[in-house]
Design a protein around this nucleic acid. Structure first.
Length: 505
RNA sequence: GGGGCUGUAGCUCAGGUGGUAGAGCAUCUGCCUUUUAAGCAGAGGGUCGAUGGUUCGAGUCCAUCCAGCCUCACCA
């Protein structure tokens, strides 16, 4: 393909016309893509601060043309900047470049200078005295029209709502669906709130390898890639855990990382192959202490992102005001099915599972079966923030044995709206026990569990140097964002969710 | 991976029982100097997701494939 990648005859009539306009603009000696514009104000702030009796205010704003109402010798335009939309009023008598308007389109970026006033119909607008094209748009946008009804509700006509297109063409989505932008602004607020919360407590933000020779720290299938120079396969990390704990061995007393993990699993409303995880490890603390930290952190985040500890998006209000409800896993199951499964033989567990219509794999041990029963029977009912604690040992190979309960580990997960939001434990720091746990994982793998962890000899070696007692925590940032912004799909809190490539591209 | 639904103009959608496509908005032309889903008059625009098949003839029927959504399974 040596010729033009986008031959003109491939363009539709609207794109053809915009290119002709571009040529015409250039022919008039105007640079359709100039270098800067002195912006002095933004839409939101102009609308918020306008008063009818104040003296006229002159502003320069820049943004994208979202609509035209051309009336011959006067034109109304809605200009959208990063903060919102504001109406422009251009009169032939007042604007030298009025004729150039004919060559502008919805989607073009312009800068305008003028004074703020209120129109006869009551809309705060800018009476433009001077304007400049800042970037010509060559592709038609999905046109969204909206109006505000008598009750103040915004009605949107012909919304750009095709989810596939919205995710694939996120730039367009952000332009025409302003509420999308809001979600991602809140996501940023949320991450910032967490970071500030942890920084204030003196924990150090670090970065650990994404490319790893051996993956670990969670039960999941990994992505594999290849390093050419070393000629070795590397895995994309499924968790940060084992590297962060090496840092605790190294003498840091509190470290955290916010970054992407990658799991080669199915995708659905709450799973994207790459997702953002926050992991925190604090020396000399245990999971009891960590529960209190999580309570306080989520309260702060909720206030920061939503304005209050009570979060509601149509459904039942979720309260992030501490303390959260706490139950052991066994209590939660007993509450639900009326039977305490503590120390119950595997045979009986299988019967209970069967009575709940839970399908079991032959590779599942007692602990895994209990977890299945919990996920199936209890988890969906955990709407308000609830800590579930003390998990079966065999499904938590990195967690420390419970100080008083045989066969359990000191681990908790936090559930909200039936979803796991946080996972934490008193970290296993006994290298001999860790070795045995890894060996058990190897046996599970042999039994057919392809999510069982690999034996990380180097990690055990690090523990052998001595790791202080430590509390560890992982929080799924995407899911937390879903909770705090009322989104139902993880794809609505990830700017560019994983998509199958389009055909032919 | 299983099941259900969907894919027609730039956007949102109509298109009984098969006869090569329509609407609103957007676009273009004309009129209109405080309009606002501006208005009025006219016009252009589509390899109907892809490929095969049945048929004189397929957006419409059949098969396969591609993509998306929902749902179940697995996982955070």
């Amino acid at each position: 393909m040596s010729e033009n990648l986008h031959p003109l005859d491939d363009l539709n009539d609207q794109m053809m016309r915009r290119r002709q306009e571009l040529d015409e603009i250039i022919a008039r000696g105007i640079n359709p893509f100039p270098y800067s514009y002195p912006v002095t104000a933004h839409a939101r702030e102009i609308l918020d601060t306008f008063t009818d009796d104040a003296p006229q205010r002159t502003v320069s704003v820049a943004g994208r043309i979202m609509s035209f109402r051309r009336m011959g010798k006067a034109t109304f335009v809605h200009l959208q900047d990063s903060t919102g939309k504001i109406q422009l009023y251009l009169r032939k008598d007042d604007v030298e470049q009025y004729a150039l308007l004919k060559l502008l389109d919805i989607g073009d970026i312009i800068g305008v200078k003028g004074f703020v006033f209120r129109t006869r119909m009551g809309e705060i607008s800018i009476h433009v005295q001077d304007y400049e094209l800042l970037a010509k748009s060559l592709r038609p946008l999905p046109v969204v029209k909206e109006k505000v009804d008598d009750e103040g509700n915004k009605i949107v006509y012909d919304p750009f709502k095709d989810k596939e297109l919205r995710y694939r063409k996120r730039a367009v989505d952000l332009i025409v669906n302003p509420e999308v932008k809001e979600v991602f602004i809140k996501r940023s607020l949320l991450v910032r709130a967490i970071r500030r919360f942890l920084d204030e407590r003196g924990y150090l933000e670090v970065e650990t390898p994404i490319l790893q020779p051996l993956y670990g720290g969670a039960a999941a299938r990994p992505f594999v890639t290849h390093h050419n120079a070393l000629d070795i396969d590397l895995y994309l990390r499924i968790a940060d855990e084992l590297f962060l704990k090496r840092l605790i061995v190294g003498g840091f007393e509190g470290v955290y990382e916010i970054g992407k993990d990658f799991r080669n699993e199915g995708m659905d409303r709450s799973h994207n192959p790459e997702f953002t995880m926050m992991e925190l490890y604090v020396a000399y603390r245990d999971y009891e202490w960590m529960m209190e930290l999580v309570e306080e952190m989520l309260r702060v985040v909720a206030v920061e992102v939503t304005g209050g500890a009570e979060v509601s998006f149509g459904g039942p209000a979720i309260s992030f005001a501490p303390p959260f409800k706490r139950m052991t896993m066994m209590e939660a199951i007993e509450d639900k099915i009326g039977e305490n499964l503590r120390g119950v033989p595997e045979k009986r567990l299988q019967e209970v599972a069967a009575s709940l219509d839970i399908e079991l794999e032959p590779s599942m041990g007692a602990g895994k079966i209990i977890d299945e029963i919990f996920s199936e029977a209890v988890q969906p009912d955990l709407v308000q923030p609830t800590f579930i604690l003390d998990y079966p040992l065999e499904m938590s190979p990195l967690a420390k044995k419970h100080r008083s309960e045989e066969g359990l580990v000191e681990r908790f997960e936090l559930f909200v709206k039936g979803q796991e939001i946080a996972n934490a434990f008193s970290e296993l720091n006994d290298p001999l026990d860790q070795r045995r746990r890894f060996e058990e994982q190897v046996r599970l793998r042999a039994r057919g569990d392809d999510e069982a962890m690999a034996f990380d000899e180097d990690f055990v070696e690090a523990l052998e140097y001595g790791m202080p007692p430590t509390a560890g925590l992982g929080i799924g940032i995407d899911r937390l964002t879903m909770l705090m912004t009322g989104q139902e799909s993880i794809r609505d809190v990830i700017l560019f969710p994983t998509m199958r490539p389009e055909q032919g591209s």
